[in-house]
């Protein structure tokens, strides 16, 4: 049972915040390197607020800011 095509969510990754520089790769979205858990949390919340976006906390500790 698929979605209606008119309501297919248009997910867009706005930013990716990580503490592991190995995961900073090329891409269309912004990838930021944080130096601590606290700092990555702060950056995530600030960007998400500014962009009115949602946040996914990945199991590896990284944050992904997406807009649906």
């Amino acid at each position: 049972m698929g979605r209606e095509s008119s309501m297919k969510p248009n997910y867009e990754i706005l930013a990716y915040i990580t503490r592991n520089k190995e995961r900073v790769l090329n891409g269309s979205s912004l990838v930021l390197l944080a130096d601590s858990e606290e700092s990555s949390k702060e950056m995530t919340v600030d960007i998400a607020k500014a962009m009115k976006a949602d946040v996914v906390h990945l199991k590896n500790g990284d944050y992904m800011i997406i807009r649906v």
Binding site: K41, V45, D54, V55, V56, H57, Y63
Partner: peptide, 21 residues
């Protein structure tokens, strides 16, 4: 649980990534 939303044990979404959410 771990920033994921469950209702009656059914997984719903993991968009609650911040403490506020």
């Amino acid at each position: 649980k771990d920033s994921s939303l469950y209702v009656d044990g059914i997984y719903v979404s993991n968009l609650l990534g911040t403490d506020n959410a």
